[in-house]
């Protein structure tokens, strides 16, 4: 019979130091499309036409047409990058897209918004460096669960960061919700939240949880966690990969900086 302890030791350390390393933890993985307004030609609406969740919209006003882009609705399907004739929508590896203010996910020419530092400082004061999470699946496609389960594999090894999943909401600091919120899960989501001691925080994981994404609305679905609970961190992505989730959790704990402002990764 195999001696599993020995087997495990021989296997060696598999853990990646992210976020201390760089993005190579997810080589090749495509992130949010980058928008280059200077390449965009007026009058063409192709990107908006191929955007199923309506993240890209063309708004007409007195000065003509204007493109709006909300990364909180983007499901990373890459249709805009494939069909934009001018290269104004470009593929990128920008997937560490967690923000604490929903408005930061909206592409903004003027870069007016700033990350909400006040909130994360408060959380830091409350929890120091550790965090216990209660996950609730409020109607996901299970892509998000697959990536959450991966957080505990030896490669990401979430425990090394002092972050744990807990079965009971009574022990939880953070409610991590996925899915657009189905009619049947609404009650259970709210009950879980109400069972958590204060102070407590809420993270919306995945584009469905942020805005409803590609599946929100209709007779059975809401349009994201925000309709029902106050959200502290938004993590768009379809699904966000485990490294993006680590970045989001550390952002909540004020152990890393928000990278996204005005819908763009800060350089």
């Amino acid at each position: 019979m195999p001696v599993w302890t020995l087997y495990g030791l021989k296997r060696g350390v598999a853990t990646n130091p992210w976020p201390e390393g760089r993005e190579e933890t997810q080589a090749g993985v495509e992130g949010m499309p980058r928008f280059h307004p200077e390449r965009c030609k007026q009058g063409c609406r192709i990107c908006a036409d191929v955007c199923l969740p309506g993240a890209i919209r063309i708004i007409e006003n007195a000065r003509g047409e204007r493109l709006t882009l909300d990364y909180g609705k983007c499901v990373v399907c890459q249709m805009c990058t494939q069909f934009c004739p001018d290269g104004a929508m470009e593929k990128s590896q920008d997937w560490a897209f967690a923000v604490s203010k929903r408005a930061d996910l909206i592409w903004d020419e003027a870069l007016m918004s700033l990350p909400a530092q006040a909130l994360t400082q408060k959380i830091h004061a409350a929890f120091g460096r550790s965090l216990h999470i209660r996950h609730v699946d409020a109607g996901s496609c299970n892509g998000c669960e697959s990536e959450l389960q991966a957080l505990n594999n030896p490669y990401y090894n979430l425990h090394r960061l002092g972050i744990f999943f807990t079965p009971s909401p009574r022990f939880a600091d953070l409610l991590l919700a996925t899915g657009p919120v189905t009619y049947a899960m609404k009650e259970a989501l709210l009950e879980t939240y109400n069972a958590m001691p204060e102070p407590r925080w809420v993270m919306a994981m995945g584009t469905c949880a942020v805005s409803g994404g590609a599946v929100g609305g209709g007779y059975a679905c809401g349009r994201g966690i925000e309709e029902f609970l106050p959200v502290d961190v938004y993590v768009p992505g379809c699904p966000p990969n485990p490294a993006a989730m680590i970045q989001a959790l550390l952002l909540l704990l004020n152990r890393t900086q928000q990278r996204v402002k005005g819908g763009r990764l800060a350089d």
């Binding site: 495990g8 249709m79 990969n241």
Partner: peptide, 29 residues
């Protein structure tokens, strides 16, 4: 426990191969 860790590590390596060759860990798009 070690069996769990090894299985999920191999899964992760396959997902990373997906990402590397297709751009998506879930073979989307």
């Amino acid at each position: 426990k070690v069996g769990e860790a090894q299985g999920k590590l191999l899964e992760e390596q396959c997902k990373q191969i997906n990402g590397l060759f297709t751009g998506s860990r879930f073979l989307r798009g």
